[in-house]
Nucleic acid binder design. Structure first.
Length: 665
RNA sequence: CGGGGUGUAGCUCAGCCUGGUUUAGAGCGCCUGGUUCGGGACCAGGAGGUCGCAGGUUCAAAUCCUGUCACCCCGACCA
């Protein structure tokens, strides 16, 4: 390919608000062009790389035995109702608008742009996979996806339209799923290695997609939006959404000595007595520490949440300002009784009204949450712990408003403490205690009196660690905090955990029967009994691979493509294109390399040398041959690699041989 | 969704606060001619803008006001 006949709109400048290296370089190198927020065109150079990445993915998926198909972008919303994910996806699900608003007879009213394809693929499985003999099978596609991202950012890292490889495995049982999962996991490792990505696989939360086991494939770079916890010895790696720190459960030093929060076991406690201290205006941990002369690790942070159960999972009655479109109103198939397999045709939430018996009693509860002053609450863990504690799924948590807090604690926001609070609990309220808090003695906390704190707070004595017999509220101890840098690996190795930001390029899930059950997708077992498919799903963000590859392969001058995904493998720069000898030699090199199967780009533009070198560095083609008048007079050309820039003078024929040997190591 | 910011030439931006000497500017890029020619050259000339859109105030609006749309940033949210 000749540069002069191709289309590579490079620029010297980039928008000020592009901060991620990959974003800046993709714009400057002419790989992409933004059309709207989170919507990009792939220009010829960028598209070549996109196709190369997709091809690597395809090869490895095929190698792993997966079978490619293509599913529609346009999907009937009815399918999403069957799995309850219209509500779960919320605004992320893009819907078509009817021509006349409110016209339900218009097909557009019932059609969405697919953000993922679990429902569609399960529908296919339901139709055609009837027997255990057809299992296992993994289907995949490489296809555009649409999501109503509230805030696209960082160029191609977070967009409303993107290319994704999504695969779905169908097995007869969980043992089969384990195998299918492992195959995909291994394929992912090969894919990311081949793409030149320094990746790490971490344990992950399953989020709205559901399922139990999940791993994310992460590329460590500051441009990422995720934070992962990785132990220094490498024996533990997890997304901080899920990461947990070492906790020595054998320590029984501070088990509760009293079940009744009102009566501390006197005489038995060597801990200091409670003492109130005037701390005017100090509502934040740091301020209080200064006043009390203590450290955040010696404080108990008391946060009040309100929890709401799903009263109606259809979108009809959602409060307009209910900021949680996520899993809030997802009907929990797990807890639904025997009608689970019946698809719900109704759009008014009739099914779900049967699923939450406690709903009528307490649609809203209050949660008092305790963590150490130097720890932060992990709301994902918190929600799971809360759901476990009250036996209700689909809980929505929000930090309580000041009125609720004052009503519960009798003090202004910032002065809440656990001691004595239990007496103020209502039916259904929760006291959730981070397990690290149970190890504290004589801690400081709010006094439940404005402008006062207390010292000497001791778990078990001053507040209960278990639900007192006959109490209307529930007390639970759990791991509900974010890990912090320096925590120890939960494996017990003692290795310190470090937190790093990362780009998620792939995600694998064990779904189990979540979708097959709710969609009634079954096969017949050897015994002739219907059984729901045991499913897994596996995603790769193709565009993100490109961004991640650039993040981890660039320098001050531009991109340094890994050979495997470079838009071209070799760039021949004709320095004096008007010089016939130079141009002939360069063209001949280019033709020979192409004939040998190499992807060659010939810079035949009539530009100054410096200009062309800058462009060459910017677009980052890994191999380079420079043909110039001077060196050609000596019968040589210059071979170099973008990565190290080391020049070697070679005869043209030798340069061809060198390039060809470099591309097949 | 909450908070903040920005819309002026293909790109990056100045001008706006304090309305009128601004015929709306600069740099980059583009076109023409010339000089250059191994790390984003120089000189001369030139093309290119409904100042996001719609109202309003005013003798007069890129500039002030209102509305609206778009984009960006922080947060919330997020397979």
């Amino acid at each position: 390919m000749r540069w002069s006949q191709f289309f590579i709109p490079t620029t010297k400048e980039s928008p000020k608000d592009a901060t991620a290296a990959s974003h800046i370089l993709m714009l400057r190198a002419g790989l992409i062009r933004q059309l709207a927020a989170g919507i990009y065109s792939y220009l010829p150079l960028g598209y070549r790389t996109l196709r190369k990445v997709a091809e690597i993915v395809r090869q490895e998926m095929n190698r792993a035995g997966a079978v490619e198909l293509n599913m529609p972008v346009l999907q009937p919303v009815d399918l999403w109702e069957q799995t309850g994910r219209t509500a779960a996806m919320g605004d992320v699900l893009l819907r078509l608008r009817p021509i006349h608003s409110g016209d339900h007879s218009d097909w557009r009213s019932h059609t969405v742009l697919g953000p993922t394809h679990e429902e569609v693929v399960t529908e296919i499985a339901r139709a055609y996979l009837n027997s255990y003999k057809q299992l296992p099978i993994t289907l995949y596609q490489i296809q555009v996806k649409f999501r109503g991202e509230a805030r696209p950012k960082s160029g191609v890292l977070r967009t409303r339209e993107f290319l994704m490889k999504d695969a779905y495995s169908f097995d007869a049982d969980t043992a089969g799923l384990d195998l299918s999962y492992q195959k995909m996991y291994d394929a992912y490792c090969r894919i990311f290695s081949r793409c030149g990505l320094p990746y790490v696989a971490v344990e992950a939360d399953t989020g709205a997609i559901g399922g139990d086991v999940s791993h994310e494939f992460m590329v460590l770079t500051d441009a990422g939006e995720d934070t992962v916890a990785i132990s220094e010895s490498g024996d533990y790696a997890a997304n901080t959404e899920r990461a947990t720190a070492f906790f020595d459960a054998s320590h029984e030093a501070t088990r509760p000595r009293s079940h009744t929060e009102q009566e501390p076991a006197e005489g038995e406690a060597p801990a200091e007595p409670l003492r109130e201290v005037h701390t005017p205006g100090a509502g934040r941990v740091d301020d209080v520490c200064k006043l009390l002369g203590t450290a955040p690790a010696q404080m108990i942070k008391t946060l009040i949440y309100t929890g709401t159960y799903p009263t109606n999972p259809s979108n009809a009655t959602q409060p307009s300002n209910a900021t949680q479109p996520s899993n809030a109103t997802q009907p929990s198939n797990a807890t639904r009784p025997s009608n689970a397999t019946r698809p719900s045709p109704d759009r008014k939430g009739g099914v779900s009204s049967q699923s939450a018996p406690a709903t009528d009693i307490a649609p809203t509860i209050r949660l008092v949450v305790l963590v150490r002053g130097d720890h932060e609450i992990n709301e994902i863990k918190l929600r799971k712990a809360a759901e476990a504690a009250c036996g209700q799924m689909g809980l929505t948590l929000e930090l309580a408003d000041p009125r609720t807090i004052e009503g519960l604690t009798g003090a202004a926001v910032g002065f809440a403490g656990p001691q004595g609070l239990a007496a103020r609990f209502r039916q259904g309220d929760l006291l959730l205690i981070d397990r690290d808090v149970t190890r504290m003695r004589s801690a400081a906390s709010g006094a439940n009196r404005t402008d006062y704190h207390v010292t000497g707070v001791t778990p078990g004595r001053d507040f209960p660690l278990e639900t007192p017999p006959g109490a209307a509220f529930v007390v639970a101890v759990a791991d509900i905090r974010m890990v912090v840098d320096g925590d120890r690996s939960p494996t017990g190795s003692g290795a310190p955990i470090r937190l790093k930001t990362a780009i998620e390029v792939g995600h694998v899930f064990k779904l189990g029967t979540k979708y097959s059950q709710s969609m009634d997708a079954t096969f017949l077992t050897r015994e002739g009994k219907p059984h729901p498919f045991v499913m897994g799903c596996y995603g790769i963000g193709v565009n993100r691979i490109i961004a991640a590859a650039i993040e981890s392969n660039h320098d001050a001058n531009g991109i340094i493509w890994p050979l495997s995904i470079a838009p071209f493998e070799v760039l021949i720069v004709a320095l004096d294109p008007k010089d016939e000898h130079v141009m002939q030699t360069a063209a001949s090199l280019h033709d020979q390399l192409e004939a040998a199967g190499a992807e060659a780009l010939l810079d035949d533009r009539d530009e100054r040398a410096g200009f062309k070198f800058k462009d060459a560095d910017l677009i980052g083609i890994p191999l380079r041959v420079v043909v110039g008048k001077k060196s050609l007079a000596d019968g040589v050309v210059e071979f170099s690699r973008r990565r190290d820039g080391e020049k070697r003078l070679l005869a043209p024929a030798a340069a061809v041989a060198e390039v060809l040997s470099q591309r097949t190591p």
